[in-house]
Design a protein around this nucleic acid. Structure first.
Lengths: 196, 196
DNA sequence: TACGACATGTAATCTGTTACATGATTGA
DNA sequence: TCAATCATGTAACAGATTACATGTCGTA
């Protein structure tokens, strides 16, 4: 059974707890969105499709006069989920505007301008680090426990790996940009600013 | 003037040399595709649009009976390109199926299975490293000159930064996965395999 | 002569986002 | 009472891929 893009994240979250479409969206926005986003426009139609295929089962549990449909994963659903996870293939798609700008930065006249492009890219990743620190801090209450050593204790299970990956990754990019900036400046000092 | 996604990569390549749509596609597939892909279905219509807006100018240069239209960037186009590059904002989108699998790997029963998910992710990035080494090797002919020190000399200019970034990045991910696998195995030895 | 590279283009399809419509509940 | 949150859903649009249609040229 071929799982759609949204289907994967829905079954994944339902493997942990029963949830409504709204709940799933909340969890996505607060965790997987950094590498696997999903919108209402995808989630609600997909929930219907997954139920038709027997991978999940929904139950109407209205809260007062407020409609609410909560879904539970079925045995068939769990099997589809685990066989997807255990399949060794996986896609990686990156769309990185900063890198594209760096790639074409030789269209700018001065080395200073080119360095500025690298600096802007670093800043974008610094912002991502801060955003992830917020996610990490939110759950560990109070002090922002964002260093790789302590995160795992605060966020047990596999999600901790992924949060740590995000933090490590964006910090690595910032460091990479800073090193490149430094070596570009160094080269400029030596050649006296002769182009790149 | 708002530049479309494809417009950015088209203007970028045209800032270096005059090219046909076919040429642009070749260059994209051989360089930016790793972080900024583009298909014929986007390139050809966009070339028309860019010409209508006066950012590029096309000339029919048939090769014998074979049709061929070559485009050149205009002054207006160059201005739009550079102001886009110098704008400090940029988007980063990642869609990483391996990370999603790791995130939900607690749905699997044994630690061994979970480690296998990390191992599969590492393998995907090892393949990316090999692919980039091929790109790097293709231009430097013969010996595969893929170490960060020598790449810049073989591929002068900004594209070298980006190639180096790709290589460094995928190697970093492989290392990250290997370290996580090691520490997961370590934890298992200590606890005697009590879940995650 | 057949295949692969050169070359342009469009139509169908798919995926995903945004905006909108609708309405209940909770707390300031 | 007003805003924010809870809750579901759809329609319009945007972005992108795939497949197809068409034809030339060089070379094995």
């Amino acid at each position: 059974m071929e799982l759609s893009s949204v289907g994967k994240v829905i079954l994944g979250f339902l493997s942990r707890e029963d949830l409504s479409g709204y709940d799933i969206k909340l969890r996505v926005d607060d965790s997987t969105r950094f590498f696997w986003a999903a919108s209402y426009g995808q989630i609600y139609p997909e929930l219907k499709r997954l139920e038709e295929e027997g991978l999940i089962k929904g139950t109407d549990i209205p809260q007062g006069g407020r409609a609410r449909r909560v879904y539970r994963i079925t045995e068939a659903g769990r099997e589809v989920l685990t066989s997807w996870i255990m399949d060794t293939g996986s896609t990686v798609e990156l769309r990185h505007e900063g890198l594209l700008k760096v790639f074409f930065a030789d269209a700018l006249d001065s080395t200073d301008n080119q360095v500025a492009v690298l600096e802007a890219m670093a800043e974008v990743h610094r912002r991502q680090v801060r955003e992830l620190e917020l996610v990490a801090g939110k759950k560990s209450e109070g002090e922002l426990a964002c260093n790789p050593e302590t995160i795992a204790e605060d966020h047990p299970g596999m999600p901790a790996f992924v949060l740590r990956f995000g933090l490590d990754f964006h910090r690595w990019v910032v460091g990479w940009c800073e090193r490149e900036i430094e070596s570009a400046r160094e080269a400029e000092r030596v050649t006296g600013g002769t182009g790149v």
